[in-house]
Amino acid sequence: MSQNPLIRFEQVTKVYRKGALETQALRGLDLSVQSGEFVALWGPSGSGKTTALNLVGALDVPTTGKVYIEGTDLGSLSRAQLSQLRRDRIGFVFQAYNLIPVLSAYENAEAVMVLQGVPAAQRRERVMGLLKDVGLEGMEHRRPYELSGGQQQRVAIARAIAANPAVVLADEPTANVDSETAEKLLAIMAGLNRERGVTFVFSTHDPRVMKYARRLVGLIDGKVATDVVKEAGA
């Protein structure tokens, strides 16, 4: 492990409270992810996978402990700084695609770059290249409702990596697509990881994801139970 991991959880706990009911999602999570990794967080429901992604995605805050991205403690950032961090350093791929319905595939893919103020010509070049990479060439003008689930997820992947984030967080990205599409999506993400060096962190139950992942972190009861780095070519 290097001295400066891209992501670091330090004794992180997370407790959800609903009235008198308390659910402890994370119980002292310690985990580091290096830049360029392709990591799958796996485990049974309630093991804390999604909670861990929420915390590293700056969508939620830990009850105790600290989460660092590129050495920055997320707890020390203001709302505006967290927005900026999500915009510039994190890409999301959600289980339910979650494209913006009124935007075309092209516009969805460029959405984060628009927020960043990237010039239109530069956006166009990058987005067209990405849409080609994810197999959506010629479909850039289609709205989400004109795309299949798998095609929407490809747009979501393009959106997630278009702005060159430090890490892409993918929450069960293959859960809503058929087996063949899931394989294609994983191949695309693995290719992006390999060829562009994009760091991916998945939460998943899907054995296919684990097949592609080069590091498998098993979570049980909110803690790391196993952490396996596959041998190259495995």
């Binding site: 969508l59 999500r86 979650n98 959405a111 984060v112 927020l115």
Partner: peptide, 16 residues
């Protein structure tokens, strides 16, 4: 609200 949540996750600010 789900869409706004997505937009916040993408980096839109509350002000936007």
């Amino acid at each position: 609200s789900r869409e706004f949540g997505i937009m916040l996750a993408l980096g839109y600010t509350a002000r936007q």
